[in-house]
């Protein structure tokens, strides 16, 4: 199912999307499959699987540490696509940095995404101005190139982004890098309103999913009141981190946490 169809299906059920992010290969490639299954059992709708890069400038310490650890444990694109292909039960999107896409070759990378059942690609250091070559290739496959819109994105930029966007828009909730925050940013509502107005005027209704800093059920509830989905990443990675230090049943915790978040996307 294409990503936009997934959002449509959820809408019919009066649900919003819960998108869960984890770094592939953290703590190991084998663990990733089990962690993904726990997330899926807990009810996430879309799995965002990170392919780690050595220099993740858009990420806060939690995901940086996970990326470093995953790379040290031997994660690489070949292994990533193998792992991704084995995960079933949710729609999958890939998050990585542009250099990894470039070095594999744009077409090769997108082809591998399609073969592994990955329906979307998020590249946080690829702004719309530089996205043409990759966008063109994505259009030839069943893969959406997913763009980010930030609170600082100006109207002219937003128009360019909406024009190129498909799948969903990754709405960056705050000025900053990824990482769990205590409080949700106050500016989310006006930020979303601004994007929706632009979507309306351009007649391009791409679903909006909000990410960065979302770490609690009440955050998810608040986001789902105004947007089509919530993206949670660092909060899951933290559970994995803690799980490595203690004897806790990390997989069960992940599943339960995912369930507690998913509940908030229903009937919103």
């Amino acid at each position: 199912m294409r990503i936009e169809e997934k959002f449509k299906e959820l809408k019919e059920r009066k649900e919003k999307a819960l998108i869960g992010f984890v770094t592939a290969g953290y703590p190991s490639a084998e663990d990733t499959k089990e962690i993904a299954n726990a997330l899926i059992k807990g009810g996430i709708d879309i799995l965002e699987l990170g392919l780690p890069f050595s220099d993740p400038i858009a990420d806060g310490v939690t995901i940086q540490r996970a990326s470093e650890s995953s790379l040290r444990a031997g994660m690489n694109p070949d292994l990533y696509f193998e792992v991704a292909a084995r995960i079933k039960g949710a729609e999958k999107v890939c998050l990585t940095y542009y250099n990894l896409v470039l070095q594999r070759g744009l077409e090769e990378f997108v082809k591998d995404c399609e073969s592994a059942g990955i329906k979307g690609l998020i590249v946080p250091d690829l702004p719309v101005e530089e996205s043409k070559p990759l966008l063109k290739i994505c259009e030839g496959y069943e893969t959406d190139l997913i763009f980010l819109v930030a609170p600082t994105t100006t109207e002219p930029r937003m128009a360019k982004i909406l024009d190129a966007a498909s799948g969903f828009i990754y709405v960056v909730s705050l000025l900053g890098v990824t990482g769990a925050r205590e409080k949700l940013s106050d500016s989310i509502r006006p930020h979303i309103r601004r994007i929706k107005e632009m979507e309306l005027s351009m007649d391009r209704p791409v679903p909006l999913a909000v990410g960065f800093g979302i770490s609690k059920p009440e955050h998810v509830r608040a986001v789902c009141e105004v947007a089509d989905g919530a993206i949670v990443g660092s909060a899951f990675i933290k559970i994995i981190e803690e799980g490595l230090r203690s004897e806790d049943d990390m997989l069960r915790k992940i599943e339960e946490f995912a369930r507690s978040l998913k509940k908030e996307t229903k009937g919103a």
Partner: peptide, 22 residues
Amino acid sequence: EQGKYGIYGGKFAPEVLMSALE
């Protein structure tokens, strides 16, 4: 216009920074 010298250069930055670069 894109800040390129031949194929080199450009702006491969997170969206948050793009308007600041402009």
